[in-house]
Amino acid sequence: MSTPAAGSNPARITSEVVAKVAKLASLKLSEDEITLMTSQLSGMLDHFADIDKLDLENVVPLAQPFPLKNVFREDVIVKGLDRDEVLAAAPAAEDGRFRVPPSSGLGEQ
């Protein structure tokens, strides 16, 4: 099902990679959507390849487009949300907690 996008370097991205990323992001894509995304993502990667060709030896990598750093708040407690109000908005709650279906996701901790 590998379908290199027309006009792009076929090595940039395959439909398998697109399908895998979609699965990791819990997106259900049809075959047609995968084909379309593969083509569009290949176009984007072509653009990055163009940037790669530039001489960027003396350019500092940009972590963030804003000219800001060290934005902090002080360690002071501010009243948050009311539990009953929040749980009333949830699909299900029990015992002061959110009740959720058993996850098939991949957990940490």
Partner: peptide
């Protein structure tokens, strides 16, 4: 454990 459980309760 999560495997075989019916549901989960979450405290944030």
């Amino acid at each position: 454990r999560i495997h075989g459980s019916d549901y989960s309760l979450v405290d944030f």
